[in-house]
Amino acid sequence: MPYNRPMSHFTYENCPYPVRESMVEAFRASWLYIAEPGSWWTGEERVAIAAAARDAADCLLCAKRKTALSPAAVSGAHLARPESSRLSAKVVDSVHRIATDASRLSGTWLGDTLDATFTDGHWVEAVSVVVTIVCIDAQHKSLGLPLEPLPESLAGDPDGYRPPNAQIDVGWVPMLTPDALTGPEADIYGGSPQMGNVIRAMSLVPDAVRQLDAQASVQYLPNVDVRDFGKTGELSLSRPQIELVAGRTSALNDCFY
């Protein structure tokens, strides 16, 4: 299914549930985001990362690690279908860990994993691609809908852009504070003087923040509205209902944040 026909994705034909047009448009834009070259990966590599994230759901090694006292106690090979086979073993392992066992990642492990060809920029962008597909797939699975076929990649080279003001502060990767936004990334926090760490965490790759905001705007709330507890965005649930679903989902992921 070539991506040069974006309307062919997310048609929701025969879907028994009402899916808003704004959500359809956001999901189609997400598929384009995955298909395009980014700052650190080509479009082909990004589609392969998305494929690997899907592989992880059926990966026997990931399942064994998830139930082990320590993920390091279990070795073996990850499931790698043809779509993800162009990635190195290190990248496949990283993608599977992000997708299936993120709460047990550590700064030490990440420091040992990153190198000159798999940099912090590659890591943040890989996280962005993984979570882009995970959040849409999770919605489809929850509703009993089939997973959307992956997009075809678009040609081009990564631009290698790194925000000059990004610095390590509250996490393992460099990120931008609102008062450090300049030039091409001046818009990424929507003009807000404060932004949650979980949003800032992606700011080493500014397009990842833009993508996150676009998706969150249809699946939850725009980033700038999160701390306004009267806001419910486009959702038809009350805010306490939204936060109950959010909190229980986070707890089942063992996520402290």
């Binding site: 995970v134 849409i136 999770a138 249809v218 939850y220 989902t249 992921n253």
Partner: peptide
């Protein structure tokens, strides 16, 4: 959708 968002 909210489930998906917080899986992210």
């Amino acid at each position: 959708a909210v489930i998906g968002n917080f899986q992210r």
